[in-house]
Design a protein around this nucleic acid. Structure first.
Length: 210
DNA sequence: CTCTTGATCTTCT
DNA sequence: GAAGATCAAGAGC
């Protein structure tokens, strides 16, 4: 008897409770790896965070390194809010502000595994391949329709939702992508083995929680 | 697969 | 005036 063909079951997203301000009010280096596995939704569309980068105010690559400006004002505000900026004149990128007011540290969301609202994401991106929908900081903002109007919005109120992960995933680390200052700092974090990263992690060094 | 290049424009010097 | 937390397409291997 031929075995009946069953379509691959879609991965069931496991949504933990919404992440509140206290989660973000810690060192950016604690928050960044713990965001791997969380689920980011904007108006119900989004997916599982599989890649992030940490930017600390003492870091020459951080937008806040040289002090407050109109662009980075949200970074200097309280934790738990979205910092959105324009990249290369044509893309948006989204960060989550961490630590404390005035600390000016944030985590850049670099890639998602799409789980919610695939049709909307495909329409906005003009693509079918799920691996191409959110595999980069500029791609995911287009898929989720994140723009400057989301700059400064809280991460725990509509239209934005960021849910805690259920289980602790295996995390890999590496140097950050696309920067020209402090290039050696290993502050990029990814979900080990994910097919939805912006770029492969050259090594498979596992992250060791402190 | 990797590497190179053009697009496009805001921000800060 | 130059740089920049990017992307997509095209060439070459």
């Amino acid at each position: 008897m031929p075995r009946p063909r069953v379509p691959a079951a879609p991965r069931l997203p496991s949504l933990g409770p919404p992440l509140r301000r206290a989660f973000f009010a810690r060192s950016v280096h604690e928050v960044a790896p713990e965001l791997i596995g969380a689920t980011l939704l904007v108006d119900g569309v989004g997916g599982i965070v599989v890649e992030v980068e940490a930017y600390h105010h003492s870091d020459p690559a951080a937008h806040s390194f040289r002090g407050p400006t109109p662009r980075n004002a949200v970074m200097f505000g309280p934790p738990g809010f979205a910092y959105v900026y324009r990249s290369y004149g044509m893309h948006w990128c989204v960060n989550v502000v961490c630590e404390a007011e005035g600390s000016a540290s944030a985590v850049l969301i670099r890639a998602l595994e799409p789980t919610h609202g695939l049709a909307a994401m495909r329409r906005r991106r003009g693509l079918d391949d799920p691996r191409a929908l959110c595999s980069g900081p500029g791609k995911l903002t287009q898929a989720l329709a994140i723009t400057y109007k989301h700059n400064g919005l809280p991460l725990d109120k509509p239209p934005i939702a960021l849910h805690a992960r259920i289980a602790v995933p295996k995390i890999v680390t590496g140097i950050r992508i696309g920067i020209t200052k402090a290039v050696e700092l290993p502050w990029r974090y990814g979900l080990q083995g994910s097919r939805f990263l912006s770029k492969a992690f050259p090594n498979q060094d596992r992250h060791r929680p402190a």
